[in-house]
Every structure is written in structure tokens, then in C-alpha cells.
């Protein structure tokens, strides 16, 4: 099959960028989108041109490295999938695809399709943990945790930190990411002692990183490769307010 690609090329952080057109032919519909990028890059290399820089690693949808907007949709057209899990059979023969990096002030472009997502790490460093030193833990079965609770915590904890939520949001908001982590730890009994402090610190770090605010449209939820629910944002909003009420 044949595809026309318009790919964002930008040599470096402080350089201007532009969309460039590439035509690819002889593609196999069973090829993954990133394998198509490999094919393109090998071709560019042979032509003596610089290949397109893009992030990818595990190629099985769990590391959260890959990050491209295909036709304005982070991770492409499929629900519950990362870019690496998009296969060419999702597109029509001869289709034109515009491929751009995540767009958000908090994720500056480093080169081509590579952005700097370290803001997420800074939020985690501010409070995305349970403070337990190695060796301090009691027996794992000492604290029963209901199956439902464990499942809910898992659903939140499944976030891969890819940043698609921010990329899809009209406001470049990171609330789904932060809410997922706040909820994962806030749902579990182990997370209770630091619950108030955690949500406050993470929200403050989120604001400091230059993300926008939630205006309740839930584009984040629609593109999340792990289908994390925007309900968690409601939960975080509640947790945040309650964290300010003393003795509660």
C-alpha cells in the first residue's frame, strides 16, 4: 500500500520547524506505524539525509516512549493503543497522514518528533510515592485489600506516562496523568498517611510545570492508551479540596 506522510521536521529546540512531505510505496498493511517510520528512515539514510528523530522503545505499548500525533490525534486513530500499536491496516491506501510531535508548552520539542516530557518526572518527584524505605515493610498479607480496591488502584496505576492526555488536551493539561497517580496511591490503605500532602504537592508541581487546566472535555480520556477514566480527575479535585480541610 501507499501512504503520503507530512512529518514535522525541526532540527533542534530553538529552531523553527516545518512539515515535510514524504511518499512511501510498497507498504504492508500488517506493518506497524513505527516499522513504517523505520522504512522511511532507512530510505532517508541511504539518500544521505537525516532520518526523522522519534522516540520509541518497547514497541508493545507499555513503556510510554512513543509519542506522535497522527492527523491531530495523539497515538493515532485507535482507542486504547499507543503509536507503536497502530498498524497500517488502520489507514486507507493512498491516505495522507500528518505526523506531529506532542504539542504543549510543558513538552518542548527537542528534535523532529521528540519532546521533553521531564515535567512528568518532576511531578512524581514532588509526591508520587509512598514513603517507605527498603526493609521497613510488614508482611504483604498483613493488610488485606479488597479485590475491588486493588483492581481500581491497578486501573489508575496502569498509566504509562506517555503524555497523550496533555497532547490531546486543548489546554495542555496534565490532570489525567496526575489524577491517575494520586488515585492509585490514594485508593490503597498504604497510601493514606501521605494522602493529603501528596495531592497538594503533586498539584503544585503540575501547576509549576506550565500545564494548563482541565476544562472538562475529556479528550484525555479518549486518547489514553490505557483508557484511564477522567473520573479520576473528579476524584483528584475532591481529594485536593479535602486536603485543605483540617482534621478530616
Amino acid at each position: 500500500m501507499k501512504l503520503h506522510l507530512k512529518i514535522w521536521r525541526q532540527p533542534g529546540k530553538d529552531h523553527p520547524g516545518k512539515l515535510e512531505m514524504y511518499d512511501l510505496d510498497g507498504l504492508n498493511p500488517d506493518m506497524s506505524f513505527l516499522e513504517m517510520m523505520d522504512v522511511l528512515n532507512d530510505r532517508l539514510t541511504r539518500e544521505g539525509k537525516e532520518p526523522v528523530a522519534f522516540e520509541h522503545d518497547c514497541r508493545e505499548g507499555i513503556c510510554g516512549s512513543c509519542a506522535m500525533a497522527i492527523n491531530g490525534e495523539p497515538h493515532g486513530p485507535n482507542d486504547g493503543a499507543t503509536t507503536c500499536q497502530v498498524y497500517l491496516r488502520s489507514f486507507k491506501d493512498g491516505e495522507t497522514l500528518t505526523v506531529e510531535p506532542w504539542r504543549a508548552r510543558a513538552f518542548p520539542v527537542l528534535k523532529d518528533l521528540v519532546t521533553d516530557r521531564s515535567a512528568f518526572d518532576r511531578i512524581m518527584q514532588a509526591g508520587g510515592f509512598i514513603s517507605v524505605n527498603t526493609g521497613q515493610a510488614p508482611d504483604a498479607n498483613a493488610m488485606p485489600i479488597g479485590k475491588e480496591t486493588a483492581e481500581q488502584a491497578f486501573d489508575a496505576a496502569h498509566c504509562i506516562g506517555c503524555g497523550a492526555c496533555v497532547a490531546a488536551c486543548r489546554n495542555g493539561s496534565a490532570m489525567l496523568f496526575v489524577a491517575a497517580k494520586v488515585s492509585h496511591l490514594g485508593l490503597l490503605p498504604q497510601g493514606q498517611p501521605e494522602r493529603k500532602q501528596r495531592v497538594r504537592r503533586m498539584v503544585e508541581a503540575m501547576d509549576a510545570a506550565g500545564f494548563g487546566n482541565c476544562s472538562n472535555q475529556y479528550a484525555c480520556e479518549a486518547v489514553c492508551p490505557k483508557e484511564i477514566s477522567a473520573d479520576l480527575i473528579a476524584r483528584m479535585n475532591r481529594d485536593y479540596a479535602l486536603s485543605l480541610v483540617p482534621k478530616l
Partner: peptide, 11 residues
């Protein structure tokens, strides 16, 4: 301010 650049093609 948090979204200074938008996608060339809207989703």
C-alpha cells in the same frame, strides 16, 4: 499559554 502551538491538522 499552555498550548502555544496547535496541530496543523485537527483531530
Amino acid at each position: 499559554a499552555a498550548k502555544p502551538v496547535n496541530y496543523a491538522v485537527a483531530g
